[in-house]
Computed example of a mutant assay.
Amino acid sequence: MTAIAASGPADTSWRDGKRLLWPLGLLVPTIPWIAWGLAAATGWGVAWWAGPILVFGVFPFFDWAIGKDSDNPPDSVLAFLEAQRYYRWCTYLYLPLQYAGLVTAAWIWSTGRLDTIDAVGLAVSVGTVGGIGINTAHELGHKKDELERWLSKVALAQTLYGHFYIEHNRGHHVRVATPEDPASSRLGESFYRFWPRSVAGSFRSGWHLEKARLERMGRKPWTLRNDVLNAWAMSLAGFGALIAVFGVRIVPFLLIQAVFGFSLLEVVNYLEHYGLLRQRNGERYERCAPRHSWNSNNIASNVLLYHLQRHSDHHANPTRRYQALRHFDDAPELPSGYATMIVLAYVTPLWRRVMDPKVVAHYSGDVTLANLQPRKREKLIAKYGARV
């Protein structure tokens, strides 16, 4: 592996073991072309579904086969590590590939050569790219650099989820692991109940947060200075341009890929804080700590998601760049990487069998300390008990 040049002689022994792996994340936005190539080479229509096949089938295998890495960069190299532009380009390059794939897919849909099932498969594959692109937007949107913040909105435009730029930074990071946060799932809550609560709640929260910001400035919300509106305007402009060029035939597939894309984000939201709760100190919640996020050190998922799985450090240091995020020994750990856990989240009985006991164990058997689904509170207490 390539050694990291350090700020002092004592730091030269540390190496970023994933340094040469980060560009592998750029394979994700090539999924539409992978699907097209496989379909052309084999004649198999299932190839158009390459996106979900990779995410739900291949990536979980690599999580298991490659294993974990809990290595942390020492504090003495963090500033230098974050300053290296190599890592930034690994995220920047995702965007042109993401949109080139979307344009390619729009052209394919416009030709009418695919039957409906294959066209939907391509839409889901494109949505996979857009959904993981939201994670790229997540990485960029937390930064102070204006260009990166603008690129975050660009990445979100494909999935019609521009309000995430506001809600995640100023809503979720404030209310995380509390009942007030729409993006923090509750013990006993299935993904299918969480999805509408999070989608609607995040939309409302993003709008109200930005409206309140503008009101403090003495402005009305109906202005392009509204970061929710200007983010949505990017989506409308992009979709409008594609429809103008390729025709209305592509509209259903644009919508399918957008919904699948932001649903991929929501299933990740579901698993990141499931059942975890910050306790109240009087009128306030305790400060967010590593114990309030589920972590994973599986290398495959971490490379594809820019260390998103080191989620505790991200909440402690939101502006810290992905290559410098650290593992915490006292953070609760998922049984596998996100790719595997997404599959479990879709199968509610399997998810509950695996994760509910882990939440209860995390709270030493006292389920009343967890973030409980209100309508299942009594049932959960009866099942797991409360410590006296």
Rank of each mutant, 00 (worst) to 15 (best):
A324S: 13
A212T: 09
H208V: 15
A212I: 09
L264P: 04
E272H: 02
V251P: 09
A244V: 06
G261L: 06
H292N: 13
A244H: 09
L236G: 11
R249T: 05
N298P: 04
G247V: 02
R291H: 06
L254V: 04
G247Y: 12
T319Y: 13
F246D: 01
H292T: 09
A212K: 04
R287F: 14
G282E: 09
S235A: 15
I243G: 14
A316C: 12
V303A: 01
R219W: 02
G247S: 05
L255A: 15
A231F: 01
L229G: 01
L305H: 06
N317W: 13
A237L: 10
G275S: 07
E272V: 00
D313C: 09
K220F: 07
L214K: 07
L214G: 01
F260P: 04
D313V: 10
Q309T: 09
N226L: 02
N297A: 13
V267H: 02
Q309N: 14
N317R: 14
N226A: 05
Y285T: 05
N230F: 01
S301C: 09
L209R: 06
C288D: 14
I299E: 06
S202G: 15
F253C: 11
I299Y: 02
R287V: 14
G261T: 08
A324H: 01
I256W: 06
R287G: 11
R310T: 01
H208G: 04
Q309F: 05
W232K: 01
G282Q: 00
Y274M: 14
V259I: 11
I256C: 06
L236R: 11
N317C: 09
L304K: 06
Q279A: 15
K220L: 12
N226I: 00
I256Y: 07
H273E: 00
W294A: 11
N298E: 13
R280K: 15
R310M: 13
N297V: 15
N281A: 11
R291G: 09
G201P: 05
A316W: 10
Q323L: 11
L236F: 14
G247F: 05
R216D: 08
L229T: 06
R287Y: 13
F246I: 05
R216C: 14
G201V: 06
L254P: 00
R216Y: 00
W222N: 12
E210A: 03
L236Y: 12
H311L: 06
N230A: 10
R216K: 03
E272P: 13
N226V: 05
A324R: 09
L264V: 03
G206M: 06
A258L: 04
G282F: 10
N298C: 13
V259D: 02
R284Q: 15
H307A: 13
P221Y: 01
W207H: 00
L276E: 13
Y306M: 15
H208A: 07
F262K: 04
E272T: 11
K220N: 14
I299W: 00
